[in-house]
Write a protein that binds this DNA or RNA. Sequence first.
RNA 1: GCCCUCGUGGUGAAAUUGGUAGACACAAAGGACUUAAAAUCCUUGCCCUUUUGGGAGUGCCAGUUCGAGUCUGGCCGAGGGCACCA
Length: 836
Amino acid sequence: MERINFQVIEKKWQDKFAKKTLNNKSGPKFYCLEMFPYPSGKIHMGHVRNYTIGDVIARYKFLNGYNVLHPMGWDAFGLPAENASKQNNLHPKVWTEKNIGTMKNQLKMLGLSIDWDLEVSTCDKEYYKHQQEIFIDFYKAGLVSKKETYVNWDPVEKTVLANEQVINGKGWRSNADVERKKMSQWFFNITKFSDELLSHLDSLEGWPEKVKLMQKNWIGKSLGCEIRFEVKGEKENINIFTTRPDTIFGATFIALSVDHPLSKKFNNIKSFSTFKSECNKTGTTEEALANAEKVGFDSKLFAKHPFIKNKLIPIYFANFVLMDYGSGAIFGCPAHDQRDFDFAKKYNLEIIRVVSNKKDNEKLLEAYTGDGILINSEFLNNLTVEKAKKLIIDEIEKKKIGKKKIQYRLKDWGISRQRYWGCPIPMIYLEDGSVVPVDKSELPVELPDKINLNTNGNPLDSHPTWKNTLQKSTGMKAVRETDTLDTFVDSSWYYLRFCSPKHKSSPFDEKKINYWMPVDQYIGGVEHAILHLLYSRFFTKGLKKCNSNLKFNEPFKNLFTQGMVCHETYKDKKGNWLYPEQIQKVNDKKAFKINDKSEVIIGAPESMSKSKKNTVDPETMINKYGADSVRLFILSDSPPEKDIQWSDVGVASSNKFLQRIWDLNNSVLKRKEVNTDQILESKFVNKINNYIKRIDESVKNFRLNVSVALFYEVFRFFKENLQSKISNKVLSENMVKIMKLMIPFTPHLSYECLEMFKCKNVDKWPKIDLSSISEEIKLAIQVNGKTRDILLMEKDLDIKKINKLVIERSKAAKYLKDKNITKTIFVKNKIVNYII
RNA sequence: GCCCUCGUGGUGAAAUUGGUAGACACAAAGGACUUAAAAUCCUUGCCCUUUUGGGAGUGCCAGUUCGAGUCUGGCCGAGGGCACCA
């Protein structure tokens, strides 16, 4: 048989795909979007999986008559470009554009149905110009503010670090101890939409429950109340937020953040400022916080208990109280909060039980946080926790010392970055001290081409002239904001730009986005479950606030999160990681190093990463096996939402399968006509249609690994019938149907085969046509619930006929002989169960 | 610590509403073809039995049911999210 020449075939069809879109003007719209990539250099297997899954959906919808939008672009701003630039002495722009060129070619090699006319790159000034417009609109709508906040500060590099760049409390590059530093930063006031971001999750029926739950936890709504405590001998009060107002009678101390307004009185006291700086030295990472001991500073001040006359409770400053949650103050109830308990033990504070756990006489060894009946709590006694909460809030409101309150964990989104390769924040600081947006007619605020990146801190700030400007309307001297926007801003609205990527006058054409939006299917990694998806949802809500003509509330109607691509790991005897191409496998457990034949230790499969050297280059694989084989393999074996293990043997076997399909197509074309048997033909057609139905359902439900398994089955079945008494016409017609089913998976081969069959209406999903002849079914025969035989029979037989068949033909008969059948359970076309 | 998800052969995994467990594939062993190899194809897969056949079996223990991978309760294990969050 002729070998399939995939290089030639794939090139031929890719040229055709380049000139074709998935537009079906008359059909309903379908916006299929995959998360766009960061142009880091080359595509990796994760991209291959993401974009192949997306391509299957886009092509499937197109074949089913939808008007499909399937764009692609580049998340092109970001720090790696600056780092690469310092290393290679290449301008970030040049480096980025080079990578885009490479990766675009690689994506084309995969045979994706991308409409490249819609391509968008976030570092393009035509893109970030509109982003600056949105920023100004948001600013005018009160969704932007500048405020002081704590950041991860690297004292050596003199820059802010993202949380991911802080490893064990140290800067990832400088290895210096990261400090918490207060800095003035620009923020998007995402918390203004806390409630909507939470409640609208319920409308996202097409999102994985897992992702919705993660967002819900992240937003972190908690119900409670605020209570005002008077401080003895001071004018200032302390406001405290609590979710456990029922435990107020167990309150034995108050703890404040070192940044609480009351701390001003202590700033001149040396021991306090030492304490405060110690607190700030603690990093903001989880590890640092978990390891940090709970320590306090006794203020020697006392607060008046709001419900117990003449009772005074001590006030401490404590390192575990955060200024940016609630009001930076808590009341401690040691008996019912573990952290308070630890603190009280350390400083010998009073512990009063107020919720009974039926072991009230035993010594308290840890805080009791469960439910129970209130004790030692005056008018709350004998109430449940829930009822006590209600009553105490009523009392607090009656006494006017506080009120019911909803608190969110969600914080505003800090968007300032002290970096060059990002979108400049379009704000200017005027001579007279005011801070105003750049006039819209002056946009874009462009990045300067010439830049020295080897500066301490922000390169734009060190630029000799860039930041000096004038306000257009007044001619007043001004200084530009030199921070750039977090790159998550770039990706928060790109899906809108794709609807009208060349629109000049505004970020998007209203008509276009109201037609295409929301995205019908969004596909990407679960690692974006919170940040990117939450930010995008915020942007949609923000834009809607600025422009009431927008007709959608949420950007992504259906979300699919695909799993990662994993690969075995290899190490030599010294423990150094090895690339797959450096080793030779003997069998599953044994391998050796190619250059010196030394032993190699095979490790567990882990997600592909450069540091573990367990990566496989997609382009190499495409060149070796062809894009269709790579696509087919990445969809086989594992369900798309789960991790998949890459294996070269696996892709090779996909390749062999495609070769068999190719051979089979050729065999059908060259087949000599035979005498036909009508019944056999009908059965054949029926079975093929049954497969079409199952494949259609599996694609619809994202069970693409099952689709692939069904392809194996249907081709095996087809091959078995190649010599049967079935006409060439019927065989050809059905082969065409199967090849159409495969278009979304292996577009090159499918279109090539369809062309060989001179198929018209290529881009039409086959109709399911279950012919009238009844199919044979398998019926399970059970006795007392145990399957004793399986009988092949006509469909839809009644129980009487089946009883007869069982006695005559089945192996179950011997179990029923001379037995009294007390009950018969019969499920049509499935099972019959005799109870004896 | 809190919340969520998942446990099926040597491996990745299938299994509409509870109704044939292990489809499909990888790996392995044996065999066919071949002078040989590659490629291709076939068979096998836990326990007992020479075979026919029978038994056990979806992490463990119980329960509901004619019937449980699927439903309920408890336990064990793995993965993920959140966390000085008041």
